[in-house]
């Protein structure tokens, strides 16, 4: 077993182990941190496949930006761990049964020789002068230019959707109105009532 194989198996084990922790951990923060570990381990597997650009992007974007944001969200929210836990226990038998059935079917249906490996080449080392990023850029802007542009539109739509849902117009939010407050008439604020004497 060469060093490459060794790194692969260690990373793969890390991916599986940390992914399990993500799902089973009691503490949401711990889940998020385990997810970070999953990303790091997957990045190292991609690195072995000479996908340097993708591996670095995974770390920069997901670990650096998305997960940090996610941690903030978790800390802002008051998540009731106990109820989630109870629900998990209640549905556990059903979930496990479904998982076993699905995995069984998968093992039955998917055998390695069914996949067309002739189409897929094993990772090739093109040497140091080969730029992963440049090649990816070339293919994105030529063969996949339509998909690339549609993805851009999709991101634009995500921004519009988020803003239209989160942005409040002035009439929707409570703000101070200094002029109205200064011009107020005492009679509008307090009403003096004379109690009836019996």
């Amino acid at each position: 077993m060469g060093i490459i194989d060794f790194i692969f198996y260690v990373s793969a084990a890390l991916v599986l182990g940390s992914a399990t922790v993500v799902v089973t951990s009691r503490n949401p923060v711990r889940s998020a941190l385990a997810l970070v570990l999953t990303f790091l381990a997957s990045a190292s597997i991609w690195m072995l496949a000479y996908a340097e650009f993708l591996a670095l992007i995974l770390i920069l974007v997901y670990v650096g930006a998305v997960m940090t944001l996610f941690l903030f969200v978790i800390m802002m929210l008051d998540i009731d761990v106990v109820t989630t836990r109870q629900r998990f226990v209640r549905y556990a038998p059903l979930v496990i049964a479904m998982g076993v059935i699905l995995t069984g079917l998968l093992l039955l249906a998917l055998k390695p020789d069914y996949f067309v490996f002739a189409h897929l080449q094993s990772a090739v080392d093109y040497g140091l002068s080969y730029s992963n990023t440049a090649e990816l850029g070339k293919i994105l802007y030529t063969e996949y230019v339509l998909a690339f542009e549609v993805a851009a539109v999709l991101l634009l739509v995500a921004i519009i959707a988020a803003v239209s849902l989160a942005h409040r117009k002035p009439r929707d939010c409570k703000t101070q109105q200094p002029v109205a407050q200064m011009m107020v008439d005492p009679k509008q604020r307090i009403r003096l009532v004379k109690p009836e004497r019996k």
Partner: peptide, 17 residues
């Protein structure tokens, strides 16, 4: 499959909002 999936997402995402 790529354009099909992207088209589907571009169709659905605005609908959710």
């Amino acid at each position: 499959f790529i354009t099909l999936f992207l088209g589907l997402e571009l169709l659905s995402l605005p609908l959710y909002a």
